[in-house]
Design a protein around this nucleic acid. Structure first.
Lengths: 301, 301
DNA sequence: GCTCACGACAAAGATTTTCTTTCTTTGCGG
DNA sequence: CCGCAAAGAAAGAAAATCTTTGTCGTGAGC
């Protein structure tokens, strides 16, 4: 008959001792520092004496009291064994699959470049990409996880912010004028590629709006290319067919490679839409779904 | 950087494996069986396969699947170490004190007889008895724990049912008639000891009420002893001063010893008041308070 | 063959625990 | 002297855990 309570507090205690601070422990436990502080103090209430000496400054803010050291060794070893046990439980699963849905533009221009890192970290989890430009019903299990660009408030799913977005003007480096700087006037004279896909509530600019903010004296006509596919708009820009207004995140690689060039970078046009990873709460109870979710949320953009 | 979640589920899993049922595990963890079932199933969702083979009958309702056995060994050992660590943390405390308040009658006739068992089980915890016939304000910290007889709904404290109560008629064995049975008629002719202490809402009978239920043909006058102290009423009965109506729990020892005799046992008079252990929620966060509380709740009456 | 007991299971709602957010305090370093 | 970092506290929100109720399946006993 085991007599064991306050598991979460023991975990918080051990992580705080190991890191020397609640801040360090909080980062490991994926909670806020006050949360760790509360857990440790509740344990101190329980045992009836302080478990740390506190320092209000310096690198080592918490020092375990001598009376706790012996116990901390047992607790650390115990938690190590629990982690080993949990890993063994997970390790017995045959390969598992995560179905990720995202738009063609997002998959091709952003997500694919990152999936190698996921497979490296999680070799037993297969990712299946379900490319779709319509909003997949995750609550109905049509996919496990979605990467979406939008306002973030979709029904029936948990959405977690990844990064914000802004609209920039780009063109192929071949199109750049050789003998003068790029100006709004220069842009007006190029073939303008219009993205016809709807972005409700997203504050996407038209070329007219963007150029007005850029200081252009004349407003362009609606001539040029009009494509109702964001992926195709980017491809047209990459193919040097004209100048395009695009979402910055989707052309990051092309910008890095120099193939596309960011025109008039001082003109900022942040939008309300941002990138989120979304999943049904029920799906997140599965290890592989939570693993993918947590991996994407944790990695730098 | 440790990666450990679902501690509660691991604990539920291990206890279920060790007991072979959720019912057994629930008893150990002090929760209901469905609670254990939910914890285990959430872990099964997490790892993606069943961890037990279920049997709908027989003594062994749950059998760990082969894949889980290896992990269960680690988890069991890990939990053992955590328990050891927690015990070491508690063990470092100097002696601690629990202040228990109860009425004179309850302390003298019930609680004192049980405290040896507590001290045996918890040698480092001192109990200080605060005898008081008024209702101590536990929320204000006037005492840590109270044993009370009442309706159970006191403000600002957690109350836990201990046992119910009934009113019985008793007298010293010296007073018993030698040559005939005890009848209601016989009782009417004795010195009746009246308990004058108030019992609001408790359904305590007067002698008149009790005797009416006993089949007495005549109703006694209000003569006899009238004492406004339950403890003194019991002492008067023990001193053979007359026949008393008393709370059965408070005279259990005297009944067991034969000194007092339960008259007309077929006359039952259960009351709405029952015995509860009460404590402020904040006090229960201290180990020694929770230990006393859990000890009293768990022991047979 | 029927009834009862036992325990897993599921659903829904209640309760408790954990967590976040906001603000304050303290002390050290620049 | 100011800025920074982290602990601490309080209040409220969110999530996890738990309880209650009822169902189902199976075996034992009558």
């Amino acid at each position: 008959m085991r007599d064991l309570t306050r598991l979460k507090s023991l975990q918080a205690l051990e992580a705080s001792a190991r890191h020397g601070s609640f801040v360090g422990a909080a980062a490991e436990l994926d909670v806020t520092p006050p949360a760790v502080g509360q857990l440790v103090r509740s344990l101190e209430d329980w045992v009836g004496y302080p478990l740390f000496r506190r320092s209000r400054s310096g690198a080592e803010r918490l020092t375990p009291v001598d009376e706790a050291q012996d116990a901390l060794d047992d607790i650390a070893e115990g938690l190590d064994l629990l982690e080993t046990g949990l890993r063994k439980l997970r390790g017995r699963k045959a390969r598992s699959v995560v179905v990720v849905t995202a738009s063609q533009a997002l998959v091709a221009n952003w997500l694919l470049a990152r999936l190698d890192d996921f497979s490296t970290n999680y070799p037993t989890i297969d990712v299946r990409l379900d490319v779709s430009d319509r909003v997949i019903d995750l609550a109905q299990g049509e996919a496990d996880v979605g990467i979406r660009c939008g306002l973030g408030s979709w029904k029936g799913v948990k959405s977690t912010f990844l990064m914000s977005e802004e609209i920039i003007a780009v063109c192929h480096n071949r199109l750049l004028p050789v003998d003068r700087d790029v100006t709004a006037g220069w842009i007006v004279d190029q073939t303008l590629i219009h993205d016809g896909t709807p972005h409700p509530g997203g504050d996407f600019p038209t070329w007219a709006e963007w150029l007005a903010r850029s200081g252009a004296n004349q407003v362009p006509s609606e001539r040029g290319l009009r494509i109702n596919s964001t992926a195709a708009v980017i491809q047209a820009a990459v193919a040097a067919r004209g100048v395009a207004l695009v979402r910055k995140a989707l052309v990051a690689q092309e910008l890095d490679s120099g193939r596309l060039v960011h025109l008039l970078p001082n003109v900022r046009w942040p939008v309300k839409w941002a990138y989120y990873i979304v999943a049904a709460p029920k799906a997140l109870r599965r290890y592989e779904i939570a693993a993918f979710h947590d991996w994407l949320v944790a990695r730098p953009r």
